[in-house]
Design a protein around this nucleic acid. Structure first.
Lengths: 242, 242
DNA sequence: TCAAGTTGTCTATGCTAATAGACAACTTCA
DNA sequence: TGAAGTTGTCTATTAGCATAGACAACTTGA
């Protein structure tokens, strides 16, 4: 019943690595600057220097820090600002941040609507759907994995179309829909599962922002419903009230 | 270079526990229903039964599941829906969900404005602030820990006032502010640090939703800026577009 | 009532995480 | 140049993770 005295089940070096990464993400360690020495880090976390070394090694492998023998260990990073508005387009948001948006089809398959999917899409339970699993990147950095569902009757061959245009905006344009908007967005967080972690190039145990959303056409008719998993360490959602 | 073949630094029993918890959170295991047997879980995760038992033991300790000897292991849970609007009041949101909102002062102290805080609050760097660290609960379940900053000149003794009224809405009402709205909200996710984990009664390694927000009065003048850490496994944010 | 299926507890063993100390290799700065 | 401070590498030891097998205690349903 009482709380746990430490993060049971999570290796110490992992906790140290996460702590340092958090420090970087929050700006306590600025990009380009030198981290405290291994001995100092070991003292602040009350841990052996070798444990710190292992933590730093994993961060270095992921390209977050760079060690220079005799000198110190240095930082590099930056989080992508991702506004959530009724007009939410991955390519526009990433492009506005000065990065090149990329899309990549992982898998397209046929599916049938569960009760929840049917409700979101305004269809009947069991209606034929196209399920598209896609990876989205900014430059070469994976940002999110998303699973999208569309009506198979309204969007036949959506999977093949997506494979060639690699953008949801262009996909729906192909079916004559020139504009759409976000109707609902639900956000929570979880730990990445094995396959998401692999696709996002995340260490397992890292958090993802899970976003369930539905886009509708100008008449309010549902087009597509999605579940996207964003690498939490690479994005920051901006909610604009009013 | 290559990705990690498994969640290095995270114990197997922890991965199994997280997997099951995710299954519960996503509704794959409905509340009240029976989980698969320990042997079956062990097979799906390709892991020893003892490892599964340890995973289930931690979930049971946190009240997520309940084991019944000879029969099986059963689920219990529900996530709190937390809408993010320009009118965002913890007490109203929790109350609307049929729970009793509670607030608890952890610590109040004097502080001075960093450049970021000053910008958010429309003050000068170094201006005197009151910093309030508070825990918010729904019934007896901790939901979030928040650190709030207010101008010490405009809200003298804010810490003492909060300690007695235990609500941000009532606090500002005490200074004659009858209404306010959310002006900006930024969301990301992280792993809970040791003290937040303890206050939220979270196992370390569990994710939190980190929300940075600023409230303004009807004239648009900043009142308070906050950083809140929500237990991700207990809430789900709802963003309403339009 | 009995067999099958479930959770609970014990013993035992190999492997990895974490600690500890020592020293080499290198950089920085006085 | 030299001393202080840094990262890199080695050896050794202890505690905890994970596996394995066996059996007890209990529930369920035929």
């Amino acid at each position: 019943m009482s709380m746990q005295d430490a993060a049971t089940g999570v290796a110490l070096w992992r906790q140290v690595a996460d702590g340092i990464e958090r420090g970087i993400a929050e700006g306590r360690f600025a990009a380009g600057e030198k981290l405290p020495g291994e001995m100092e880090i070991a003292e602040t976390y009350r841990v052996n220097r070798h444990t710190v070394r292992r933590a730093l090694a994993t961060l270095a492998e992921r390209g977050l820090v760079r060690a220079e023998r005799g000198s110190g260990t240095y930082v590099e990073t930056q989080r992508l600002a991702y506004p959530l508005r009724s007009r939410t387009r991955f390519s526009e948001i990433v492009g506005a941040g000065g990065h090149e948006p990329r899309g990549q089809l992982i898998e397209a398959s046929d599916d049938v609507a569960t009760r929840e999917l049917a409700r979101e899409l305004g269809l009947k339970t069991g209606a034929p759907l196209v399920r598209i699993e896609a990876l989205r990147l900014a430059d070469r950095t994976p940002i999110c994995v998303s699973t999208s569902w569309l009506s198979a009757e309204r969007f036949p061959d959506a999977g093949q179309v997506f494979a060639s245009v690699r953008s949801m905006t262009k996909l729906v344009a192909h079916y004559g829909i020139r504009d759409y908007r976000r109707s609902s967005t639900r956000i929570t967080a979880a730990i990445a599962d094995a396959s998401d972690a692999a696709r996002l190039d995340l260490a397992l145990g890292r958090p993802v922002l899970v976003v369930d959303s539905t886009d509708v056409d100008p008449d309010g008719k549902p087009i597509v419903t999605k579940r996207s998993r964003f690498a939490a360490e690479r994005v920051e959602f901006i909610v604009e009230s009013d």
